[in-house]
């Protein structure tokens, strides 16, 4: 069977179509958020939050909570706000707080799943949560709509507060002095990051979430010079790589999350070369 025939066959499956739509939307909002996070050197906040989300998922699983996503979302948002505050706390640096939260949540989450877990396939559950496996292809209709709505909401928030995010990203003190509302903007970014992380865990798993946040921004920075250009380029990069990664994964039978990140690494390499030639 040829490639086009295979794609046509797989396109008939509703879960492939919804995975592509939700995956592209998640990648889009992760890339938008990635630009201010990378520029402010908060690249690893995604990693810390995704590990916190893993811990929350473990607790939800142990408590047998039906519909884990709202609970995980709530816990991750609280962690994002706490991390943001820790970053402003002189006694505990932001990176140290992220490291503590990251390791602590993973360890406690896995411990709880082992001690009190009800699932008979623990290794499979953990593997799927960490690496995504095929989670994006097994979303329920409710999860598809919730993911799509949240992703569109984050994109809308970014578009609405674009100028404030720009101001806070480049000079927080000036933004505060200018009455931009830096604190509220930081809170908005933290909450958005938490939402994106929880959504992206379905796409690539908690260990690979950071890839969706940093690669589009880093690639766009190689070839674009303005905040607007980087944002637009990162969005296009993320959408293209997510779509290509999902299609390659279903055709080649590879894990969806790692395939998307592998595509992003390869395309980032091309952008790196293009940036090098541009500067030469």
């Amino acid at each position: 069977m040829g490639l086009m025939q295979t794609l046509a066959l797989y396109w008939q499956y509703p879960f492939v179509r919804s995975a592509l739509a939700v995956g592209v939307l998640i990648a889009l909002c992760a890339s938008l958020l990635g630009v201010p996070l990378v520029l402010r050197r908060f690249s690893f906040i995604g990693d810390g939050l995704s590990h916190a989300a893993f811990g929350a998922m473990a607790v939800a699983s142990v408590l047998n909570l039906a519909g884990e996503m709202p609970f995980v979302l709530g816990v991750t948002v609280v962690c994002a706000v706490l991390l943001l505050r820790a970053g402003q706390n002189a006694s505990l640096r932001g990176d140290a707080a992220t490291a503590m939260l990251s390791v602590g949540a993973m360890a406690v989450g896995y411990l709880l799943m082992n001690l009190f877990g009800t699932s008979a396939n623990l290794s499979g559950d953990v593997c799927a949560t960490l690496f995504g496996a095929t989670s994006i292809l097994t979303l329920s209709a409710g999860e598809v709509w919730l993911s799509a709505a949240l992703a569109l909401g984050i994109t809308a928030v970014f578009a609405l507060f674009y100028h404030r995010i720009f101001a806070v990203t480049f000079d927080e003190d000036f933004a505060r002095a200018a009455g931009v509302g830096a604190k509220a903007c930081n809170l908005l970014l933290a909450v958005s990051a938490a939402v994106v992380i929880v959504l992206a865990m379905n796409l690539v798993g908690s260990l690979l979430v950071t890839g969706l946040v940093v690669f589009p921004a880093l690639a766009a920075m190689r070839v674009c010079g303005s905040f607007g250009g980087v944002t637009l380029c990162a969005a296009l990069f993320a959408v293209g790589c997510a779509a290509a990664g999902i299609l390659i994964a279903v055709v080649a039978g590879t894990p969806v999350g790692s395939t998307i990140v592998a595509v992003e690494i390869a395309v980032w390499g091309l952008f790196w070369l293009a940036g090098k030639r541009r500067r030469a």
Binding site: Y10, T134, T138
Partner: peptide
């Protein structure tokens, strides 16, 4: 048997769910 392993997993999951 006509599907890739990723598709098989998703389809079997859907059958059971």
């Amino acid at each position: 048997t006509a599907l890739s392993s990723t598709m098989v997993f998703a389809e079997v999951y859907n059958m059971l769910a």
